[in-house]
Simulated scan of single mutants.
Amino acid sequence: MDDFVASYGWIVWLVLILLFLTIEVVTLELTFLMIAVGSVGGLIAGLFGAPWWLQLVIAALLAVVLLVLIRPPLLRVLKRGGDPARSNVDALLGTDGTVVASVGGQFGTGQVKLANGETWTARLSPLTEQRVVAAGERVLVTSIDGATAVIVPAERTQP
């Protein structure tokens, strides 16, 4: 058995490296890349004649060191250049709008037209005074609950 592993162990390492690299291409989290590099360490140890158990130890230790020391700074560098613009639901938070159909009252919901031109079903935030917000009043979106904008009346300016 040891002769077989010594003779063909490099093939196992190559298959593992290709497998880990393929998984890394799908996940893009750098975890399997670090394990693949650890496997390269095991392959190199095997090419220098190390026994199979030492190859495994070297591959495992190298992978753990890379996962702990190299992966976190790499991820920070890669994510640093991300787009700072908010999108989807996050872009609606803090948006102002105008009430189209009164919010509150008997049914509790109404409609608002937001500054971006979208019309949403709306309800008052439970953190604000529960009253009827009439059509034409200005409101602010505090959160999104499913397809409903949770709003608060905007501060009125005194003339």
Rank of each mutant, 00 (worst) to 15 (best):
V103T: 00
G117Y: 07
I58K: 11
R71S: 09
L61A: 14
G9P: 04
L16S: 02
L114N: 13
L69C: 12
A134Y: 08
R71F: 08
F48H: 11
R80Y: 01
L66F: 02
V112M: 04
I58D: 14
A63M: 05
T148W: 10
V57Y: 12
L114P: 11
L21R: 10
G46L: 06
V15I: 04
G117E: 14
I44L: 09
D83T: 12
S87Y: 15
L69E: 13
V100M: 07
R71G: 08
G41T: 07
V26M: 11
V103P: 02
I11M: 03
D90T: 06
L14D: 04
L19K: 00
L140N: 05
T31M: 13
V103I: 05
V64K: 10
A85D: 14
V100T: 06
L18A: 06
A59N: 08
V150K: 03
V103R: 01
L47C: 07
L66E: 06
I35A: 07
F107G: 11
R138K: 09
L16V: 00
A60T: 15
E137S: 04
F48S: 10
G82N: 14
V40M: 10
I44T: 09
T119I: 12
P73G: 13
T142C: 04
T22P: 09
L67A: 10
L14H: 01
G117P: 12
V132E: 00
G94A: 12
L16H: 03
G110D: 03
L30P: 00
L56A: 15
G105M: 01
L21G: 10
Q130P: 03
L47F: 01
V65N: 10
W10L: 06
I11A: 09
V89R: 14
L56K: 08
G97E: 11
S87D: 15
F107D: 15
S143P: 11
G81Y: 08
A50Y: 04
V100F: 03
V12C: 04
V100R: 06
R71I: 03
V64P: 09
A36D: 00
V89L: 15
